[in-house]
Amino acid sequence: MNNPQVLNILSERSKEGRKSFAVLIDPDKVSDEDSLSEIIHLSVKHGVDFFFVGGSLITEDSLDWVVRMLRAESSLPVVLFPGSNLHIHQQAHAILFLSLISGRNPELLIGQHVVAAPILKKSRLEVIATGYMLIGSGIQTTAAYISNTLPIPNDKPSVAACTAMAGELLGLRLLYMDAGSGAPEPISQRVIGAVRRSVDLPLIVGGGIRSGAAARQALQAGADVVVVGNGIEKNPNLLIEVSYIVHELNAALNVHE
């Protein structure tokens, strides 16, 4: 198995109350190797914790060189965030084996998993069973359209909490709450807080995070990991800002220990 063990890292950091930052790389939105190299070097310099790689719809033949370049130019864990069973790459460290527990589309609850299972079973990838929850953002995102599901409303924390509890009881190991790429608003603190209080699993939150303030609010509400992708593509300085906030919150934890 490739090192590092991503789930162990996430679980230990969650138990300690330490926050993490993942930069999401959508292969379709990487224009060239120079721009990706810039993001990689910026991520390493400012202490990003993980690279997530994927998107709801990958139409370009770029997954291969993106993953290889991330591995070649950094030692950060590379974690696949697949939109389908086609988005598997053996050179990554791990894959989030996503089950869309917020929807009722059987293809994304179990169908895609059946097709991918024999490939993943033979691979060296760390396979992490992950409950994926789409949260409404006021518009129909690509993730909602492609998955053919209705997101959980952003003003229904009890629905989100019960969905998360069901995922935990089913034996899933992570929860990923996502407003979707390009979402106009991030997931509300009430929804994040309700889920955090309801489960003991590491909690990943992404979508609609376009400022350091939004990242801070998600982390303070209970997210263990914030994921930013679209915002960094438009404003690389956001990477620096979010990294600073994550390090600041972890430093404050050290002071109080």
Rank of each mutant, 00 (worst) to 15 (best):
Asn2Thr: 10
Asn2Glu: 06
Val6Phe: 04
Leu7Gln: 13
Leu7Glu: 14
Leu7Phe: 15
Glu16Tyr: 02
Gly17Arg: 03
Arg18Asp: 02
Lys19Gly: 02
Ala22Lys: 01
Val23Met: 07
Val23Gly: 01
Leu24Gln: 00
Ile25Pro: 12
Lys29Tyr: 06
Lys29Leu: 14
Glu33Gln: 10
Ser37Tyr: 05
Ser37Thr: 15
Glu38Ala: 14
Glu38Arg: 15
Glu38Trp: 08
Ile39Arg: 13
His41Val: 01
His41Tyr: 06
His41Ser: 12
Ser43Met: 06
Lys45Ser: 14
Val48Phe: 04
Asp49Ser: 13
Asp49Thr: 06
Val53Tyr: 11
Val53Ala: 06
Gly54Arg: 11
Gly55Ile: 13
Ser56Tyr: 11
Ile58Thr: 03
Thr59Gly: 00
Thr59Phe: 04
Leu63Asn: 11
Asp64Leu: 07
Trp65Met: 09
Trp65Tyr: 13
Val67Ile: 14
Val67Phe: 08
Val67Arg: 07
Arg68Met: 02
Met69Cys: 03
Arg71Lys: 15
Ala72Leu: 08
Ala72His: 09
Ser74Pro: 05
Ser75Asn: 13
Ser75Ala: 14
Val79Arg: 03
Phe81Val: 11
Pro82Met: 09
Asn85Lys: 12
Leu86Tyr: 13
Ile88Tyr: 04
His89Ile: 10
Gln90Asp: 14
Ala94Trp: 09
Ile95Asp: 09
Ile95Tyr: 10
Phe97Met: 01
Leu98Lys: 10
Leu100Ala: 11
Ser102Asn: 12
Ser102Arg: 06
Gly103Arg: 10
Gly103Met: 09
Pro106Trp: 10
Pro106Val: 12
Val115Ser: 07
Leu120Gly: 06
Lys122Trp: 01
Arg124Gln: 13
Leu125Gln: 07
Val127His: 04
Ala129Thr: 04
Thr130His: 06
Tyr132Leu: 07
Met133Ser: 05
Leu134Trp: 10
Ser137Ile: 06
Gln140Ser: 14
Gln140Ala: 12
Thr142Tyr: 01
Ala143Tyr: 05
Ala143Phe: 07
Ile146Arg: 13
Ser147Glu: 10
Ser147His: 12
Leu150Tyr: 05
Ile152Cys: 09
Pro153Gln: 09
Asp155Pro: 02
Lys156Thr: 04
Pro157Gln: 06
Ser158Phe: 05
Ala164Lys: 09
Gly167Pro: 02
Leu169Asp: 04
Leu169Thr: 07
Leu169His: 11
Gly171Ile: 04
Leu174Val: 08
Met177Tyr: 00
Ser181Glu: 08
Gly182Tyr: 07
Ala183Pro: 10
Pro184Tyr: 13
Glu185Ser: 13
Ser188Gly: 10
Gln189Arg: 07
Arg190Met: 03
Val191Glu: 02
Ala194Gln: 03
Arg197Trp: 00
Arg197Met: 01
Ser198Asp: 00
Leu201Cys: 10
Pro202Val: 03
Pro202Gln: 08
Leu203Trp: 02
Ile204Ala: 05
Ser211Leu: 08
Gly212Ser: 05
Ala214Glu: 12
Arg216Val: 01
Ala218Ser: 14
Ala221His: 03
Ala223Glu: 03
Ala223Asp: 03
Val225Ile: 14
Asn230Thr: 15
Glu233Ile: 10
Lys234Gly: 15
Lys234Pro: 01
Pro236Ser: 12
Asn237His: 15
Asn237Trp: 09
Leu238Val: 11
Ile240Gly: 01
Glu241Tyr: 01
Tyr244Ile: 00
Ile245Pro: 00
Val246Ile: 07
His247Met: 08
Leu249Lys: 05
Leu249Val: 06
Ala252Val: 00
Ala252Thr: 01
Leu253Asn: 00
